[in-house]
Nucleic acid binder design. Structure first.
Lengths: 129, 129
DNA sequence: CTGCACCTTCCCCTATAGTGGAAGGTCAAG
DNA sequence: CTTGACCTTCCACTATAGGGGAAGGTGCAG
């Protein structure tokens, strides 16, 4: 299987596959006589795993950690569990920060929307921000 | 006022001030005889405005838009209002995406946490992701 | 006169996840 | 034999908001 087929099969681009290889997420595949990369079904499975993990919001670095644990012969279950727990805590943190920001922006927007543009003082940049 | 004092006064670094100047957020200040930048209180006010806008979650590009409207002599009120409305919509979008992701990750985490690591199939990378 | 703190410009680096394009090699079809 | 679709490597660039540090000039104190 050439890189183009592997890319199509996983819904990625050839660029992305080479990029993952450079990042150490994908092992360097064996090469055909002409230098072309040759992928097997294991590479496809690995790419699918990466894609699913990305959809789950994991970074490439985190995915790499899981893969290294797995490549070392261990079941990455506990590692995955901890990673997901951390990810969950991060998400909660992000959501609460975003909601706080949203609340501030909403308050600001209400004030600005209720204001009369004529009342703006030309001497300052903006009386609301 | 030299750049270092202006930086201290606004809680920024000299790097940031030169960076803002390069980005067009801060007009090029007049120079002293030795080439040093000389800032006045108007620059400080502008930097404070930038800082407050950043805290409100606006990007430097958005802040630049407001400043250009203001510099053109117009009151940026309606522009600021529209910008904040867009910002609000963006934030809502981000929050809902983040919550959807959080829900997926939480479900995944529950499954993994309840699982027995021994039951992991060494033939695949991870049975959960 | 020397040191130190401050200033100048310049270029590269950070992190994220790739994308774009150049220059060149390969393979199958017409 | 040429065309087009692939493939290779390598380098640069995207967006965001600056940070690090070099090489050199300036200003004031001891």
């Amino acid at each position: 299987m050439h890189i183009g087929e592997a890319a199509t099969a996983t819904g990625m681009t050839t660029k992305t596959l080479r990029f993952y290889e450079g990042r150490g997420l994908l092992p360097a595949p064996r090469r055909a006589g002409n230098g072309y990369r040759e992928y097997g079904s294991d590479a496809i499975a690995r790419l699918d795993f990466i894609r699913r993990s990305r959809i789950a919001g994991l970074t490439l670095t985190q995915i790499g950690e899981i893969l290294r644990v797995r490549d070392a012969g261990q079941a990455p279950c506990t590692h995955v569990r901890d990673l997901l727990a951390r990810q969950l805590a991060d998400l909660d943190q992000q959501v609460s920060e975003l909601l706080a920001l949203r609340s501030d922006v909403a308050a600001l927007h209400n004030v600005v929307a209720a204001a009369d543009p004529v009342s703006c003082d030309p001497g300052q940049i903006c009386s609301f921000l």
